[in-house]
Measured scan of single mutants.
Amino acid sequence: EVTIKANLIFANGSTQTAEFKGTFEKATSEAYAYADTLKKDNGEYTVDVADKGYTLNAKFAG
């Protein structure tokens, strides 16, 4: 089991951190699915991958 950390950075400057656990593939998929649920209210996002894929920095356009 691994933990994927998602740093969510919103256009207004606020941030949120979420963690997803499971296999690498499952946890990564859940992190992206969570970011997708936030698109409606926060706009499209881009992701910078860090820490060999164990940290995802998602920046929302607003």
Rank of each mutant, 00 (worst) to 15 (best):
L56D: 01
K5F: 10
S29D: 09
E1W: 15
S14P: 07
F10L: 10
E1Y: 14
Q16I: 15
D48G: 08
F20G: 00
E25K: 09
T46C: 13
V49N: 04
I4A: 00
Y45F: 08
L56P: 00
F24H: 06
G62R: 06
T17E: 08
G62I: 06
L8R: 02
A11H: 09
S29M: 14
T15G: 07
A58S: 04
T23W: 06
T23V: 07
T55I: 08
G43I: 02
T55F: 04
A27V: 03
K39G: 06
A50V: 13
S29P: 02
A27Q: 01
F60R: 00
A58W: 15
T23F: 06
V2I: 10
E1I: 15
G22V: 04
D41E: 14
N42Q: 13
A31C: 06
A31D: 00
T55H: 03
T37K: 13
I4L: 06
D36A: 08
F24S: 04
K52M: 14
T15P: 04
G13N: 06
L56H: 02
L56R: 02
G43E: 04
I9A: 06
G53P: 02
A6M: 15
N42P: 02
N42E: 11
T3F: 06
T46E: 10
N7Y: 13
G13V: 03
A31Y: 03
L38F: 15
K21N: 08
T17G: 05
T46K: 09
I4G: 01
E44R: 07
E1T: 12
T17S: 11
T37A: 14
T15V: 14
E30M: 14
Y34T: 01
D36M: 06
Y45R: 02
T23E: 08
N12M: 05
F60C: 04
T28P: 01
T37Q: 12
Y45G: 01
V49P: 06
Y45S: 01
K52C: 15
Y32L: 14
V47I: 14
G62M: 07
A50Y: 11
N7S: 06
A31F: 15
N12T: 07
D51M: 04
A18Y: 14
I4Y: 02
S14F: 13
D36E: 13
G62S: 08
T37Y: 12
G43A: 03
S29Y: 12
F10W: 05
F20R: 00
T3C: 12
T15D: 04
F24G: 01
A33C: 08
T15W: 11
T28C: 12
K21I: 11
A50M: 13
T17I: 12
Q16V: 14
N12L: 05
F20Y: 06
N12Q: 05
T28Y: 12
G22L: 03
T46P: 02
Q16C: 15
A6S: 05
K59S: 11
T17R: 10
A6Q: 04
K52Y: 14
I9K: 07
E19C: 15
S14K: 14
D51T: 02
K52A: 14
F10T: 03
Y54K: 07
G53C: 06
V2Y: 06
V47G: 02
N12R: 05
G53Y: 03
L38E: 04
A58E: 02
I9G: 03
A27K: 00
L38C: 09
T55Q: 06
D48M: 12
K21E: 05
N12I: 05
A18V: 15
E44P: 14
T17A: 08
N57P: 01
T23S: 11
T17L: 09
A61S: 13
Y32D: 00
D41R: 10
E44D: 12
D48S: 14
A31I: 07
A33F: 08
T3H: 05
K40L: 12
T46R: 08
I9R: 08
I9L: 11
S14E: 13
T28R: 09
K59H: 14
L8N: 00
E25F: 09
A27E: 01
T3V: 13
E19T: 13
S14W: 13
K26A: 13
G43Q: 02
Y32F: 11
L38D: 00
N57M: 07
A61R: 12
A33T: 08
A58F: 15
A61E: 12
E44K: 08
K26D: 11
L56W: 08
K40E: 11
E1S: 11
V2S: 05
N57L: 08
A58Y: 15
V47L: 09
D48F: 13
N7G: 02
L56K: 02
K39V: 15
G13D: 04
K39M: 11
T15S: 11
A18W: 13
Y32K: 06
E30L: 14
K52R: 12
V47H: 03
D36C: 09
L38S: 04
E19M: 13
A6D: 02
L8P: 01
A31W: 05
A35R: 00
G53W: 03
D51Y: 04
A6V: 15
E19I: 15
D51A: 03
D51G: 04
A61D: 11
K59Y: 15
A31H: 01
S29E: 14
K40G: 11
Y45T: 00
K26R: 12
F24D: 01
N57C: 09
G62T: 07
Y32V: 06
F60P: 02
Q16W: 13
A50G: 10
N42S: 08
